[in-house]
Simulated scan of single mutants.
Amino acid sequence: MATDPKDVVRAFVDALNRQDFGRVGELITPDFSYTIMAYDLPGAQMPMGGETMLKVLPGMLALFDETGPQLELTRLVAEDGWVVAEARGSGFFRDGSPYANRYANFYEVADGRVRALREYMDTQHTATSFAAVQ
């Protein structure tokens, strides 16, 4: 298992992009927490444990076509077990409409796995995009 925090984040994002939820589960700690750092999205600001995230993700990703949304890491900065990742998300919903967003995610990495993920994005764009396809 990768131990360099940047490599752990790269492996985690790769597993998400491939929708390999078994691998995602291997790459998170038992006390993992995922928080969408927003005020105006359903479920935001409520930390989600790994088990819950792994149950919620397939339903959310089912809104997208078979390739799913893809997260492209554009910059990684690491210090003291934390990795800040600037990224672009893109994909197509099942109805063919495009999705594109920008992210700044904070990953806490411990013992070669992700302990916490705090996700920042353009929440207005996300809400508008998802509302249009639901």
Results as ranks from 00 to 15, higher is better:
Met1Val: 12
Ala2Gly: 09
Ala2Trp: 11
Ala2Arg: 15
Thr3Arg: 13
Asp4Arg: 03
Asp7Ala: 15
Asp7Ile: 02
Val8Asn: 05
Val9Ile: 12
Ala11Gly: 07
Ala11Pro: 07
Asp14Trp: 00
Ala15Asp: 00
Leu16Met: 15
Leu16Gly: 11
Arg18Met: 00
Arg18Cys: 00
Gln19Ile: 03
Asp20Phe: 05
Gly22Arg: 06
Glu26Met: 07
Glu26Arg: 14
Thr35Asp: 05
Ala38Met: 04
Tyr39Cys: 10
Leu41Pro: 08
Pro42Trp: 01
Pro42Gly: 00
Ala44Ser: 15
Gln45Gly: 13
Met46His: 12
Pro47Ser: 04
Met48Leu: 14
Gly50Met: 02
Gly50Lys: 01
Thr52Asp: 14
Thr52Pro: 01
Met53Arg: 12
Leu54Tyr: 07
Pro58Gly: 08
Asp65Leu: 07
Glu66Trp: 00
Thr67Glu: 11
Thr67Ile: 00
Leu71Pro: 01
Leu71Lys: 05
Leu73Ala: 09
Val77Ile: 15
Ala78Lys: 03
Glu79Ala: 14
Asp80Ile: 01
Asp80Cys: 02
Ala85Met: 13
Glu86Phe: 08
Ala87Tyr: 08
Arg88Asn: 14
Arg88Thr: 14
Gly91Arg: 10
Phe92Ala: 14
Arg94Met: 15
Asp95Pro: 12
Gly96Pro: 06
Gly96Val: 07
Tyr99Glu: 09
Phe106Trp: 12
Glu108Cys: 08
Ala110Asn: 04
Ala110Asp: 07
Asp111Thr: 02
Arg113Val: 01
Arg113Thr: 05
Arg115Pro: 03
Ala116His: 04
Leu117Pro: 06
Arg118Val: 04
Tyr120Ile: 07
Thr123Arg: 06
Gln124Trp: 10
Gln124Ile: 09
His125Arg: 15
His125Leu: 15
Ala127Asp: 08
Ala127Trp: 08
Thr128Val: 09
Thr128Trp: 05
Ser129Asp: 10
Ser129Asn: 07
Ala131Phe: 03
Ala131Pro: 00
Ala131Arg: 08
Ala131Asn: 11
Gln134Arg: 13
Gln134Ala: 09
